[in-house]
Computed example of a mutant assay.
Amino acid sequence: MANRVEDRLSQELFEELLQERFVQLSTVDFKTGGPNVSALSWVHAKDEFTILFAVDNRSRIIQNIARQPIVALNIIANETSYSIGGRASVQGEASSLIPINLTIIKLEIEEVRDIMFYGAKIVSEPKFNKTYDEEAAKKLDEQVLTELKKH
């Protein structure tokens, strides 16, 4: 049903966010004050009120949330599109065991909105392939997911 609003993740949405997913994060750009949209895949639902994600230490996302912590995360799942809004904060750096420098960010959920327009459903969810070494990608993804689960 379109326009449903909750204050937490539903069980089925929570489960979707326990695996690597294509999501989009909207922040307020620290320089322009305008919108900034980023694609992410390293996301993990800690509980029904919290989502963790990892970004490169050089990501503009870090500066954006330092200045304006209100963000929206968009996910397409369960035949619909959701906007998950709340406040984001830096939780710290990822372990030195991970071969790239990552920052862990926590999103404290304030609202989950079904934003699909009336009378429609998603018939095919976004999929992606890693374009670098498949074994290296799998290993890195496992390391990052393990790191997110620690926070």
Score class of each variant (00 low, 15 high):
45 A>G: 08
59 S>K: 09
36 N>G: 12
107 L>D: 05
119 G>T: 06
75 I>C: 07
69 P>T: 05
59 S>D: 10
116 M>H: 07
94 A>E: 08
68 Q>T: 14
45 A>K: 01
35 P>L: 14
59 S>V: 02
123 V>D: 12
69 P>M: 04
53 F>V: 02
84 I>S: 08
79 E>L: 09
66 A>S: 12
95 S>C: 03
115 I>R: 06
64 N>A: 11
130 K>M: 08
47 D>M: 08
98 I>S: 06
49 F>N: 15
41 S>F: 10
121 K>V: 13
97 L>G: 07
112 V>Q: 05
109 I>F: 04
115 I>S: 03
47 D>F: 06
88 A>Q: 05
74 N>L: 15
124 S>F: 06
72 A>E: 15
99 P>F: 08
103 T>Y: 05
101 N>T: 05
127 K>W: 01
99 P>Y: 07
65 I>P: 11
119 G>P: 07
55 V>S: 10
101 N>R: 09
65 I>W: 08
69 P>K: 14
55 V>Y: 03
73 L>H: 11
80 T>A: 14
75 I>T: 10
43 V>P: 03
126 P>C: 10
45 A>V: 04
93 E>V: 01
94 A>Y: 05
81 S>T: 15
91 Q>K: 10
104 I>V: 15
64 N>S: 11
107 L>W: 00
71 V>C: 11
79 E>H: 13
42 W>H: 12
79 E>S: 13
124 S>R: 15
103 T>H: 02
122 I>V: 15
115 I>C: 09
115 I>D: 03
121 K>D: 04
119 G>A: 06
67 R>S: 12
66 A>V: 09
35 P>C: 07
118 Y>I: 02
36 N>E: 14
119 G>W: 02
115 I>N: 03
134 E>K: 14
44 H>T: 01
71 V>N: 04
91 Q>F: 01
81 S>M: 08
70 I>S: 15
104 I>E: 03
99 P>L: 03
102 L>F: 09
56 D>A: 09
109 I>L: 00
35 P>H: 06
100 I>E: 07
78 N>E: 11
111 E>V: 00
43 V>Q: 00
101 N>E: 09
114 D>H: 10
38 S>R: 11
68 Q>P: 01
74 N>P: 01
82 Y>G: 10
62 I>D: 12
54 A>W: 00
73 L>W: 02
77 A>Q: 05
35 P>Y: 06
58 R>T: 13
48 E>M: 09
48 E>V: 10
37 V>T: 07
78 N>P: 04
125 E>Y: 10
109 I>C: 07
120 A>R: 15
79 E>I: 03
106 K>R: 14
63 Q>G: 13
45 A>S: 13
77 A>I: 03
117 F>S: 01
76 I>V: 14
96 S>W: 00
87 R>H: 11
101 N>V: 02
43 V>G: 02
106 K>M: 04
66 A>L: 14
34 G>R: 15
83 S>P: 07
41 S>N: 13
94 A>V: 00
87 R>D: 03
124 S>K: 14
81 S>F: 02
53 F>C: 00
134 E>H: 12
50 T>C: 02
56 D>I: 05
111 E>G: 00
127 K>F: 00
53 F>Y: 10
71 V>A: 14
48 E>W: 10
57 N>P: 00
86 G>H: 05
111 E>R: 04
58 R>E: 09
67 R>V: 13
36 N>P: 01
133 D>N: 15
43 V>Y: 01
87 R>N: 11
